[in-house]
Nucleic acid binder design. Sequence first.
RNA 1: GAGCCAUUAGCUCAGUCGGUAGAGCACCGGACUUUUAAUCCGGGCGCCCGGGGUUCGAAUCCCCGAUGGCUCACCA
Length: 497
Amino acid sequence: MNVGEEGATGGMDELNDQMLIRRQKLEDWRDEGIDPYGHRYERTHVARDILNAFDELEGEIVSIAGRITAKRGHGKASFADLLDGSGTIQLFIRINTVGEELYTQYQRLDLGDVIGVVGSVFRTRQGEISVEIHEFSLLSKALRPLPEKWHGLKDVDLRYRMRYLDLIANPQVRDVFIARSRIIQGIREFLLKRGYLEVETPMLNVIPGGANARPFVTHHNALDMDLYMRIAPELYLKRLLVGGLEKVFEIGKNFRNEGISTKHNPEYTSVEVYEAYGDANTMMALTEELFAYLAELICGTTRVEFQGNIIDLAPPWPRLTMLDAIKQYAGVDLRGLDDQEAVRVAKERGMEMPAGAGKAQAINEFFDNFVEPNLTGPVFITEHPVEISPLAKRKADDPTVTERFEPFIVGWEMGNGFTELNDPIDQKERFQEQVEQRKAGDDEAHMMDEDYIIALEHGMPPAGGLGVGIDRLVMLLTDSPSIRDVLLFPHMRPRSE
RNA sequence: GAGCCAUUAGCUCAGUCGGUAGAGCACCGGACUUUUAAUCCGGGCGCCCGGGGUUCGAAUCCCCGAUGGCUCACCA
């Protein structure tokens, strides 16, 4: 049995009393020659139109449609609430106006039924803008009851598995997903306006690249070969830079075969942006402007409230190198230390360092443990060690670190960007190091991508690149503490037994 | 993967010391022609997450499992 057959549902083969009664009503409609699953319905207005333009519409005949979410009967007159895509409006019906037959049919309607209504706009004694029903059509008979009207649907398991009920019962949930849509639209408009070209690259990869992550494996039957779901679009997008598409971006899903948490879902949405002849600084400026633009768009201000804290996204954001950040938050200066010394200091501070670990790993550990949680931000963390940045260009005056940056806000890494490595020989060596790490058991290390090296060998212009996790951005701008709150259908284990 | 917590009616939740199941909403019957968590009268809901065990007796105690949440780990 799966959830579609239990929980809010009560089972396919076990109909509870309410479901039996609704099925009986379905037959009653059919017996009267009425198809309880109607067809197209011409609407003149949605609920919000009527509420907004009452002065012009008072006394007018309108046609609306939606789901009945409440009924308040008074004998020979009744009220109901009708929920459509724009909101809720009250319905009113009187036996004097519609006659006994239609009134009886109205009384048979259940909460959850979808109806179309033709009626007149008026305001009740209590002052509520309403539509008095002249006639109505049953458009869809609901065979299962709605969640409770006052407390809504609270069970998080049901909210995620049966998101449609969540959307009906909890209006603020709808607002989050409307905001999500506007954010993605905002990103697209922001980039298009600046001359970036939107492209699509493969999600089925022969070699997954562009990130350190375990991929999902799938299989192509006709070719009889395994393929990987992409973990990032990066290497394809940079091939486009080689091809002369100088400013490109892609919005889409990435798939990572990793743990699930309040900040991680196996499939998530990112935007990646590349600009030829730019560098990390170009992309940091772009990031600041983009985030500030989106905050204004969604929140009306760059001062965004997240879980009680105010975060000001107005540019410019401070920049802090990884080593300076560690010095500041951990009180340890790793600058000038060699591998052995750095590892020793890390161990002294209680971090586990695997055999063969060097300064780069020590820096990474210090950063994760002491720095990251403190980065309320916004702040750009820069100059990551070259070992953990295999696609980023080395800093001109220090080849041990890269021209890389990560925007941090509320302690989360919101993205990643750098001056792109366009030296094919250096890139090949970096891949080779990754392959060694893979052999040593790191299944998140990169694979060798010869085809990508060949592309670089044709000459890729110097460029800046940026990736932003859109889900986390939506969390930030909608004050949502869990990634599941911004994914319509977050990944859930199937219900067994 | 580990720890903690949760799972009882369609939904939201109570359930005492282990004595065999309750409330509100929803539903059903009745009253009510401007209510809005409508109101009033009457009614019955159930695989107490699943499986074992202890016990005369288990929603309750013990063990195993499932799903979810949080924290940590993993992970950008």
